[in-house]
Design a protein around this nucleic acid. Structure first.
Lengths: 226, 226
DNA sequence: GTCTATATGTTGATAGAC
DNA sequence: GTCTATCAACATATAGAC
């Protein structure tokens, strides 16, 4: 297998990999600029022309990397999902399972969202007329919700939450709470960080509210997984 | 004072009122088309040209009624606020005060939002690059929150909710819950009605969750204001 | 208050040379 | 894989005739 560490990079079988890597670098750079544009001027203000302008190339050249503007949005949606997933996984990595992990994961999602408002809007809202993520990209998004449900089931098993918390509706209520925090923060105080945002500061409060709603019978109001 | 019921409508002092009324009708018709365009193609897809096209006039003519495209958005924001307020006031009109009124108002906000998705997106999100409502329009939006806070204080007074429910943070948590329900519904199942939406169906559940979070000391988990 | 005409700018996308 | 050239369309907004 050819390696990108080859000492003779321009020869023979090493080429295709090098080409592919270079190509991927260009794509990544293009997406970096796309995120910057959306952050500065709004998610709906992205244009192929502006991306090309910032890269110092002509617009037609970008069509070698993306089939269309929608293709760019789709790549951005996928990148957003991956980035968010990485952030969450890094946060929960060594945490205890169950309620604790749910809380830490929730904090991570909110923190990632305010740190990446452009991508977050693309994931949580539908701000671009006519754009919907392609099925294969959207599939990852569904996968993520399955993991949340599994963790809720674990919390039930541990006696931290009532049995109802393993239902589909509980997952929905969880997403309602998180997307509420994120939406209100992005819409009403866009510049703030996780610590300074008047809505993001309520993340733990919101999670408490969610957990209390599923307090197991006989248990007291415990502040789970603090 | 001249009346629009004047039997001699084209004479003298009656004219300015008739002119003003006719002008307002044209503006309203223009905004109707604007809402239709946003509903069909997304909030960000509104153009002066398309509005004119649907009205059967030329684009320049519309500039006699609106100073710019942003002016149209501002008028739409104001219309959305008024419409939502009317819906809520009609719903709570004869209800008991306190927790009951909060619950009924919340249902009304969610129902109005899924029935008016375009205007709701304009109010709850910031989907249009560079558009922010003008200060005087936005002021009404703040007024509304003050009313929510007053009703929460009333619920505290009645012993329905704990004292903390009168804090600023409680109002924020309330808006988090509502905007969460609305955001998730609009983003993930846009076509649904209040009754068929998998998220809007959880409105009462979400309000229960909110109320339980502020259960007064000594009180049991009551389903307030059902 | 409507129109035509126009200035001025933008975009997404393709064809084809190099 | 980059470019030039170009298409076809669309936009916001203004000037000025009627």
């Amino acid at each position: 297998m050819a390696t990108i560490y080859s000492s003779q990079p321009d020869v023979g079988a090493a080429m295709p990999d090098r080409r592919a890597a270079r190509r991927q670098e260009t794509i990544d750079e293009a997406l970096d600029h796309a995120v910057a544009i959306m952050t500065e001027h709004g998610v709906g203000a992205l244009t192929v022309s502006e991306m090309a302008r910032r890269m110092g190339i002509r617009a037609p050249s970008l069509y070698k990397y993306f089939p269309s503007l929608r293709g760019v949005y789709d790549a951005l949606f996928a990148r957003g999902l991956r980035s968010q997933q990485r952030a969450v996984r890094a946060a929960i990595e060594e945490s205890e399972r169950g309620a604790t992990r749910i809380r830490i994961g929730a904090r991570a999602v909110v923190a990632w969202s305010v740190a990446n408002p452009a991508l977050a809007q693309l994931l949580f809202w539908r701000p671009v007329p006519g754009f919907e993520p392609s099925p294969e990209v959207f599939h990852h998004s569904v996968t993520e919700m399955v993991e949340v449900q599994a963790e809720l089931a674990e919390a039930v098993q541990r006696g931290e939450l009532a049995a109802r918390a393993a239902d589909d509706d509980a997952v929905r209520l969880y997403t309602i709470v998180l997307s509420g925090v994120i939406s209100q923060q992005m819409a009403n105080q866009p510049g703030a960080t996780y610590d300074t945002g008047v809505f993001t500061r309520l993340t733990d409060d919101a999670i408490d509210m969610f957990f209390n709603h599923y307090t197991p019978a006989g248990a007291d109001h415990a502040d789970l997984g603090q």
